[in-house]
Design a protein around this nucleic acid. Structure first.
Lengths: 341, 341
DNA sequence: ATTAGCACTCGACCAAAGAGAGTGCTAACA
DNA sequence: TGTTAGCACTCTCTTTGGTCGAGTGCTAAT
């Protein structure tokens, strides 16, 4: 059976209606609202065909149809036209996202908030690891009796710190001296610090071995991704309003998922994606979100991926708006980060 | 009318039962379960009295009684014996909260998580402002074209950073020099940096005025509490399970409150409290949480308050367990922070 | 290929009925 | 005087049955 134009119109009609109302839609409503010039009976026949093809389904015999997940998939792949944000919307986003930049994580947080408010779904931002590859500054600061803080500043302005233990014999002056040593090495090398350099440093300086070892551990951990990327979520409340979560178990499950940052991080960790990707319901591998959809992308600066950005919502989602919003906001964030840089 | 022993026993029975089941409790159940040696009829009379006194109320004519907020209040004030945590529970808490300490905010986060898991309510931690009063180290790190990061390390090991703009003319070496200047001043003064010192510094060094001004602004902001104390919330999900939130509007409201960190911070900001304080329902001033109860305290180190710790839950709360847990966890956190110090 | 007509299905809504839990009151009792 | 048994009453919750309406599938006519 082939999908002809009329079938497509009907499929689209069912999707749009269902997305809006969350109710099954009937043949009569479609025939009337999208005035196709045919009677409900004809629409019914077509819908029966669409059901056979797997694009629609019936909750019960004799209720209207709702789109199946494959229906959504087909629509998204072959029919959907991404929303065009209006000039106003675009400039609103740009304005609010570029005002007074401080901390990169503040930028990420704000972006998450805005994206959520704008779309009415829950937004997810996976932040750039505080230090990506290059360090700009390292500082050892003594605290307490026999501890020090290793403070690392990345070239993007991210700050990471880690506490390390020290042998009692070390004096503050020694730490200062070590810091300078680290930093002179950083500045000397035009490509900033790199892992190979670290290991040569390590062998060179034996006399402060313990301290250096521990500091290097901290540094390597920071650079090797030992620090997990932080996940920001915003607008969890938006989803509570969706009728599909009137069921308490589902709601609880959803909120649980949103608190599981590890899971979320994995969900979005598809390898390399420049485009906006959409995962509908069961297309997700994690059991916990098989009733939800994801719309996500990654943001990168100078060809290097910095983090992920996405939306999570019910399967009945306005994919056209969601993907347009994700795309636009992603672009803006990229610019903002580039500027910070 | 006076409250005699039997009335108290009955009040306690109603509270314990209601807290457990969330259902009104009847005279028969009480007479039987707490075998008072009197008939339900007698209990009924007593309950009528308690109702008259305002300690109990009836949802509808002829359903069992439930404790009123004043009932809870009376119980909490005059009758409650705080739970004694078992040895096992105590050592469990101690063990899990003292293992490998890194970052202070990691400690706070973990504490919030444990407290929530342990009590099954939502926990709130108001973190110490990253820099309380004393700075241990200041570092200016250049980033990007004409910006620098002011990194401040407090004596507790908290790290705060703020981005400032620079005049183009400043070179990295200048910043390093300034950092050293700041720090030599820090080290020279045994009481670490203080606000008065800051202003003298400011007048002394006119030649790098712009940079210094901005750095000092950042520093003052950090020290003057310009940075708000961070609020950590954990276990919001626990509350979703409580039957009082089967009503969707209430649930939404609750989740909304939990996202309003500013509000939360204020809720706990009662002036100086060493003891665990309990606020029941309408005793709270904020409209939004008049259907919730708070159990909270502050943690301090060496007589100086560092932050707040608390639980938020339904009015029907196990105050005896909640306050015992808050107290114990607060003590542990104080120790941990002292040790970090 | 389309459509009108019709019987049928199924959920939503509503009212009535009955069960169950618990009360308040009265009268009897120790 | 305090306690209790007894009883009528109240109110909620659940079940049941009936009706309504939306929507379908099928068949026969166009």
């Amino acid at each position: 059976m082939n999908i002809d134009d009329r079938k497509r119109i009907i499929l689209e009609a069912v999707i749009k209606d269902y997305v809006k109302t969350a109710e099954p839609v009937g043949s009569r409503a479609i025939a009337k609202k999208y005035n196709l010039g045919v009677s409900p009976a004809t629409v019914r026949n077509e819908m029966a065909d669409l059901e056979e093809m797997g694009f629609l389904e019936q909750p019960h015999t004799s209720s209207g149809r709702i789109p199946s997940e494959s229906g959504f998939r087909y629509y998204v792949d072959y029919m959907m036209v991404k929303d065009q944000l209006t000039r106003q919307e675009e400039s609103f986003l740009e304005q609010i996202l570029t005002q007074k930049i401080e901390d990169i994580s503040a930028v990420i947080q704000r972006t998450a908030d805005i994206l959520a408010k704008f779309t009415n779904y829950a937004s997810i931002m996976v932040a750039p690891p505080a230090t990506t590859d290059n360090l700009r500054h390292i500082q050892l600061v003594p605290i307490g009796h026999s501890q020090a803080l290793v403070i690392m500043v990345s070239d993007v302005g991210g700050v990471v710190h880690k506490r390390i233990d020290l042998p009692e014999s070390i004096r503050p002056e020694d730490l200062e001296q070590l810091s300078q040593l680290f930093n002179s090495n950083l500045h000397g090398n035009p490509k900033d610090i790199s892992r190979t350099m670290l290991s040569s440093l390590r062998t060179e300086l034996l006399y402060r071995r313990q301290v250096i070892e521990r500091a290097l551990e901290a540094i390597e951990m920071a650079m090797g991704g030992g620090y997990q990327q932080k996940v920001f979520i915003s607008g969890a409340l938006n989803i509570v309003n969706q009728p599909e979560f009137k069921d308490f178990d589902k709601l609880r499950n959803l909120l649980l998922v949103l608190e599981e940052h590890d899971l979320i991080r994995n969900l979005l960790s598809e390898s390399s994606l420049k485009e906006v990707r959409i995962k509908i319901g069961n297309e997700n591998e994690a059991e916990e979100i098989k009733e939800l959809s994801l719309v996500f992308s990654s943001y990168e600066v100078e060809g290097r991926e910095k983090g992920r950005i996405g939306l999570i919502g019910p399967v009945r989602m306005e994919y056209w708006k969601a993907s347009a919003s994700v795309e636009k906001v992603r672009d803006i964030v990229q610019d903002v980060i580039k500027k910070i840089n």
